[in-house]
Design a protein around this nucleic acid. Structure first.
Length: 414
RNA sequence: GUGGCCGUAGCUCAGCUGGUGGUAGCCCCUGGUUGUGGUCCAGGAGGUCGUGGGUUCGAGUCCCACCGGUCACCCCA
């Protein structure tokens, strides 16, 4: 095994059924978002390191210890994207802002973070994500959440749960944080070391502490939702009205916060049975554009981990159906038959050849395993008469078809 | 990054207190006469027991380190 290569720690290969199911959940997401006006966006695999440093915040875990940062041959500092929201906003500022507003996009990209590898925590992971840039409308927040809800329902996610909160904005959050810090300092002797550490880096995270004795103390702490400014409170109320109207259930969680600095107002997370972590996180980020040198620009979106989703549900793609397998026994018939196979493909028929064997028994066996509907058999007998035997794999019925008619027969057969 | 558990074929796993690696199941390939599948039968391929050291007459089994996985913490999708 030492002579062989393994995928690098925290990465994996996708093939066979895994790849098919993965493809299927992406197709389901597209089937939900594309009719709603979301177009695909693709951003570079790496960006200027500063883009992530400035947007996520130098002290964030992502920036301080999880980024894959390297220098290229010209000495530029580049970083493999650890998330896609900042890159999408960068792309928005680099041209997308000229499109009709707001700009609605989806992406399915890999992300790289040097973190502890565990179930649902890889070093390269895929996210299907959505961003709506250019509108502060609460109806947009609700649309994104509602569509995501439909996607997860289509996937059949068990015990789907939505946690919702508003974390305010630059007007009200600083005052709330000051209030919270005051509370924490007043109860400092009743909180553990971890809380003290968080108090220094991100006071909001203190509320997350899982220590029961800390929780008992923190239950009396001021809540962000009680201290929103009028605009934020009105915005949050409207998001909830829209969600109620769309029939999306949610749970208000005042302690739900975000690890990245650019989030404002609406914040949400989805979770499901069978996985301790959330399967998706989203929020509004009205402060992001300015942090990376653009004009004030509102935005809202989510990133949904594909691997995490596939940990809790594996929706089966619909069986292809109607596929045809070419079983060409006669050596001299192969060139023409495979050419006809291509013609059938061009005519819309799903077709493949049994390349692995020249024995009919094995070819039919293969057709059974693959689930092909029909098999085109051409041996010496058929070849002599310019014919093919078409076998229906369900009924076992066989009929002769002239080679000149074969493509038409296959294409019209279903 | 810290701590616990784990690592036998592509996959799921046997392997007792150290004494020669399993006819195991699934998957893959071949054959069961010359052209008929979903079954059955027979055969085969595939492992330096994660890697490297150490203890021992002898290590899949015990010890150490590394690699990989997993659980908790941190954080997050």
């Amino acid at each position: 095994m030492s002579e062989r290569f393994q995928p690098p720690r925290g990465t994996r290969d996708w093939f066979g059924e895994d790849a098919a199911v993965r493809r299927h959940v992406i197709d389901l997401a597209r089937s939900v978002f594309e009719p709603a006006g979301y177009g695909e966006v693709v951003t570079p695999g790496f960006e200027d390191t500063e883009l992530f440093a400035r947007s996520s915040g130098e002290t964030s875990d992502v920036v301080s210890k999880e980024m894959y940062t390297f220098e290229d041959r010209s000495g530029r500092s580049l970083t493999l994207r650890p998330e896609s929201t900042a890159p999408v906003m960068r792309a928005y500022l680099n041209g997308m802002s000229r499109l009709p507003q707001p700009v609605k996009v989806w992406y399915c990209q890999s992300h790289f973070r040097y973190n502890a590898v565990q179930r649902g925590r890889a070093r390269e992971h895929y996210q299907f994500g959505v961003e709506v840039v250019g509108s502060p409308d609460a109806a947009v927040d609700a649309e994104v959440i509602a569509l995501q809800h439909r996607w997860y329902r289509l996937c059949g996610v068990p015990e789907l749960r939505l946690e919702l909160n508003s974390i305010g904005d630059a007007t009200c959050r600083p005052a709330y944080v000051a209030l919270l810090e005051e509370f924490i300092d007043a109860h400092i002797d009743q909180l553990d070391d971890e809380c003290l550490e968080r108090r220094k880096t991100n006071p909001l995270r203190v509320l997350d502490c899982k220590n029961p004795s800390c929780q008992a103390v923190l239950a009396a702490a001021p809540r962000i939702t009680d201290h929103l400014c009028d605009d934020c409170a009105a915005h949050f109320a409207e998001v909830r009205r829209h969600l109620d109207a769309r029939g999306v259930d949610y749970e208000l969680v005042p302690t739900l916060v975000r690890g990245l600095d650019y989030y404002t107002r609406t914040a949400w997370e989805w979770s499901a049975a069978g996985l301790a972590t959330s399967i998706s996180g989203g929020g509004r980020y009205d402060g992001l554009a300015e942090q990376i040198g653009g004009p004030p620009t509102p935005g809202v979106g989510f990133g949904a981990g594909l691997e995490r989703l596939l940990e809790v549900v594996r929706p089966q793609p619909p069986a292809p159906g109607g596929s045809v397998l070419f079983a060409v026994i006669a050596e001299q018939a192969r060139p023409r038959m495979f050419a006809l196979m291509d013609e059938a493909r061009a005519a819309g028929v799903t077709a493949d050849a049994a390349y692995g064997s020249r024995r009919l028994k094995r070819m039919l066996e293969l057709a059974s395993k693959r689930g092909d509907a029909r098999v085109v058999i051409v041996g010496d007998d058929e070849w002599e008469h310019e014919q093919a035997t078409v076998r229906d794999m369900t009924s076992g019925e066989q009929r002769s078809v002239a080679l000149d008619e074969l493509v038409k027969e296959l294409a019209g057969g279903f």
